[in-house]
Simulated scan of single mutants.
Amino acid sequence: MTDRNFSSIPLLDYSLALSSSTKSQFIIDLRHALINVGFLYLSNTDSMVDRHLIDTLKDYIPKLFALPQEEKDKIRMANSLHFLGYSRLGAELTKGKTDNREQFDIATEHISRWKSGDPDYWNVWGPSQYPDEALIPGFQQTMKTYLSQVAALGTHFITLIAEALGLPPEGLSRFYDTPDRMQHRGKVVQYPVPSERSQSDQGVGPHYDAGFLTILLQASPHPGLQVQNLSGDWIDAPPIPGTFVINFGRALEFATKGIARATSHRVLSPPVGSLSPRYSVPLFHNIALDVRVRDSKYELEFPPEILKLRDERGNLAHTDSINYSEFESQPSGMVQLMGRVKSHPDVAQRHYPALFKQFFPEGLPKQGFAY
């Protein structure tokens, strides 16, 4: 039996997946990460994501958060039907508790196709808000290019996941729409250094991610990301220069009959006394809005040897993390919308009042404002 209680995150070399002589070993290593860990580091991705582009983006991030508060507030998330824009420090909730982070939600380019009579969740995707170009020249184009390249990496990585699960490379394509009807959501996040008097070290509380995979750039050298193994222990995933962190979401776990593992994780604030904030840039690689992953039309058949590896691992332990169980019955877009409503209730109150009343019958909580 495999060691279910991992104590470190595996490191995979993406360049090995691009050579016929080394791809088979990469697929074996990816299969282990998929089934037994749920997380991995990915190195040598320069063929997909330009290294100079990453360095340029990292240089922009402190300047982005240093913009005058009134300028950041001009693109506040409450302006956006699509939950895209700026959130002040402490504006987001995880399981009802405040996350100590400031962030800009920025997605790949997309025009909402929603019109009257369409499902509300079609409007969860749409255009991003950017700060005034004159205040931070070049940032918008840098960010758009970065998100486009990382999304393309994710699209190729999905074919590798399919192969690691014993499917053909196109085995997961049924969960995606045409490129013009897809959007992938990114964030630029700052976790400030807490004071000695801070009552919480919660940068982001324990949670799972919703979709198929997340590609995270840890954009500063601070520790903080932690991953929970089956014993409930928190395993550090510190930044490794030149890598992305990739993890798998609940939609993939549901779609693969529990073979792929979604793993609970959290982010701690930087240690007291740190000289600068922690910065990170995740991209959440989405599946199509109308997909119901448990519908029979999306059911996948896996080789017996893959199912055997899942069964040898055993059942995944229950955690207190947000678990997106709505994938059992709801389309992907509705799961996304409900998650946004619960995380940003003031945006929901303004743009989705019926859903807001469903989740917050007593009105806005004292915290959790995206303005």
Score class of each variant (00 low, 15 high):
289 L>S: 13
285 H>W: 09
195 S>I: 04
250 R>S: 03
17 A>H: 02
238 P>I: 03
200 S>N: 12
10 P>M: 05
114 W>Q: 01
42 L>F: 09
210 A>N: 04
140 Q>T: 12
12 L>N: 03
11 L>R: 08
50 D>E: 14
173 S>V: 03
113 R>N: 06
69 Q>L: 12
326 E>Q: 13
60 Y>I: 08
193 V>N: 12
344 H>A: 10
350 R>S: 10
1 M>G: 12
82 H>I: 05
13 D>V: 06
310 R>S: 03
58 K>Q: 12
30 L>H: 04
273 G>Q: 03
287 I>F: 08
244 F>D: 04
22 T>N: 06
155 T>R: 14
248 F>R: 02
252 L>N: 00
304 P>L: 09
163 E>N: 08
230 L>G: 13
109 E>V: 13
34 L>N: 03
352 Y>F: 15
208 Y>C: 11
288 A>E: 09
17 A>S: 15
337 L>S: 02
346 D>E: 08
122 W>A: 05
102 E>N: 05
240 I>Q: 11
251 A>Y: 03
163 E>I: 05
331 P>E: 06
141 Q>H: 13
56 T>N: 08
110 H>A: 04
285 H>I: 15
216 L>F: 03
339 G>C: 04
350 R>N: 09
259 I>K: 02
246 I>F: 01
153 L>D: 11
133 E>Q: 12
27 I>H: 02
162 A>V: 00
25 Q>I: 11
347 V>M: 01
309 L>D: 08
322 I>G: 01
37 V>Y: 09
247 N>K: 03
288 A>H: 07
10 P>G: 08
89 L>N: 10
140 Q>L: 04
277 P>E: 07
296 S>C: 01
129 Q>S: 14
335 V>F: 00
285 H>L: 13
260 A>V: 07
342 K>C: 10
365 P>Y: 11
342 K>N: 10
280 S>Q: 02
189 V>W: 00
111 I>F: 07
70 E>I: 06
33 A>C: 09
259 I>Q: 04
334 M>I: 03
136 I>W: 05
288 A>S: 15
316 L>Y: 12
105 D>Q: 06
219 A>K: 08
282 P>S: 10
107 A>Y: 04
227 V>N: 01
237 A>D: 01
36 N>F: 12
15 S>M: 06
157 F>Y: 11
224 G>L: 05
81 L>W: 11
139 F>M: 12
160 L>R: 02
351 H>G: 07
129 Q>T: 07
126 G>E: 10
25 Q>A: 11
273 G>T: 06
334 M>R: 12
27 I>T: 15
323 N>Q: 01
240 I>N: 00
196 E>Q: 14
265 H>M: 07
136 I>V: 14
226 Q>M: 10
213 L>K: 03
297 K>A: 09
74 K>C: 09
355 L>Y: 13
189 V>R: 01
158 I>P: 01
219 A>H: 10
121 Y>R: 07
18 L>C: 11
93 L>F: 01
364 L>D: 11
93 L>H: 01
281 V>C: 14
253 E>I: 02
57 L>S: 07
127 P>N: 12
288 A>F: 04
192 P>T: 10
314 G>P: 02
208 Y>N: 15
77 M>R: 15
65 F>Q: 08
123 N>G: 14
327 F>P: 02
336 Q>G: 10
123 N>L: 09
93 L>S: 08
13 D>T: 06
99 D>R: 00
24 S>P: 01
240 I>S: 00
282 P>E: 08
